[in-house]
Design a binder for these strands. Structure first.
Lengths: 95, 95
DNA sequence: ATAAAGTAGTTTATATTATAAACCAAACAA
DNA sequence: TTGTTTGGTTTATAATATAAACTACTTTAT
């Protein structure tokens, strides 16, 4: 009845990050931080986890003199998100 | 943009318990355990938390010779669940 | 030139949560 | 009567989330 919710996605911040990335081509650290309201530390850790799970790719480079971290969702990430949403519907009575 | 998800409900097992209780008059420990697939220990702890938050009431009594624990969602619990679901929709792109 | 403040993060420590393991008391079954 | 099941609770440990402190550099003001 209640299907397991992917614990990597069942985290408020990671879910927000994925939810955001699913709607854009890519997004940088600062933008994600603003949109989610997360602290830098928390965001840094959660981006790592999403990256390790191969749900996002992370690109770090310098733009001019400033470091920049750009994140992009992977196919794997899209699949995991869709599955998560479907499973969640069991719980919240939609669909 | 991303509204905070009530941390008491943003837990797979507690969400399953509430989701289950919202659809029935009440339910006993064993039934909830079966439906959610949780272990007794985990379920015991999470029922306590939901009860402490005043999202459910817990009634313990003996039925014949056997102990019985019956849970029932409160108005507060219904409200919290509805709010949680609404907030969640921000994340999963429904509504 | 140098000090203060800002940017863009990472690392580490701590608090919170979830889970598993051990335990308890009674009932039932062989 | 010895083991097994029911119906849980308590305690210990593992996993997670979050906050605080720190790094490394840039920009701005003095």
């Amino acid at each position: 009845m209640y299907r397991k919710l992917n614990p990597i996605l069942h985290s408020q911040l990671r879910l927000a990050v994925i939810s955001l990335l699913i709607n854009v081509k890519d997004a940088d650290f600062t933008y994600i931080k603003e949109k989610t309201g997360a602290t830098s530390g928390n965001l840094s850790v959660q981006i790592d986890k999403l990256s390790e799970a191969d749900y996002i790719t992370v690109n770090k480079f310098f733009k001019g003199k400033k470091p920049k971290t750009v994140c992009k969702i992977t196919k794997n990430g899209i699949k995991a998100f869709e599955e998560y949403v479907n499973n969640l519907k069991n719980y919240i009575g939609i669909g």
